[in-house]
């Protein structure tokens, strides 16, 4: 195994899991996909491992999303399972709501804005993001600025709506 891949693994694995989590919204699936991406990197030994990993991970997540759509029918079964007897503590519920609002806000972004934002948060440089997305390097900052603004705006709009709904 190339030394540098081990280093990339050490520094990037969590970031890749986070990146994937914001696409599949399932922690275990995100880890599985991240591991799959690294397993492929072990075989392919790419030049720029970090950028390459995010490309592969994005593709894996896209395949995953397609599959998820097909399987929705079966997964609805799981939702029918009885609720746990002990209600989770309020903080846990609140954290879950909070995350759902962020997710909702992220989904208001255009795919390109969202991708750039998630890649930046995953630790990629502007150069790497430009390669990944096909944007000009100079457009990355502009895209990020817009993505951040829309994320925050959508989040706040969503929270207001939720507050209104709660009355």
């Amino acid at each position: 195994m190339p030394e540098d891949l081990a280093e990339v693994y050490r520094t990037t694995y969590r970031a890749l899991v986070r990146f994937l989590y914001r696409k599949v919204w399932d922690p275990e699936r995100a880890e599985d996909l991240a591991q799959e991406a690294f397993a492929r990197a072990l075989v392919h030994k790419p030049e720029n491992a970090r950028g390459w990993l995010f490309v592969v991970a994005a593709n894996l997540a896209r395949d995953e999303a397609r599959r998820a759509v097909r399987e929705r029918r079966h997964l609805t079964l799981l939702r029918d399972a009885p609720a746990p007897v002990a209600a989770p503590p309020d903080e846990a519920v609140e954290a879950e709501h909070e995350q759902a609002r962020v997710r909702w806000a992220l989904e208001r972004l255009t795919p390109r804005d969202r991708e750039v934002l998630l890649l930046w948060d995953g630790g990629l440089s502007y150069d790497e993001i430009a390669v990944h997305t096909g944007l000009a390097r100079g457009a990355v900052g502009t895209t990020l600025a817009r993505a951040r603004r829309r994320l925050v705006e959508a989040y706040e709009a969503g929270s207001e709506a939720a507050d209104v709904a709660r009355g």
């Binding site: 050490r10 694995y13 969590r14 880890e31 909070e98 993505a147």
Partner: peptide, 21 residues
Amino acid sequence: AAQLLAVAAPPERAAPPLQQL
């Protein structure tokens, strides 16, 4: 924005050894 993204993070868990993959 970074703060919001941090909310949308999975639980931290240790990575398995790379060699195992």
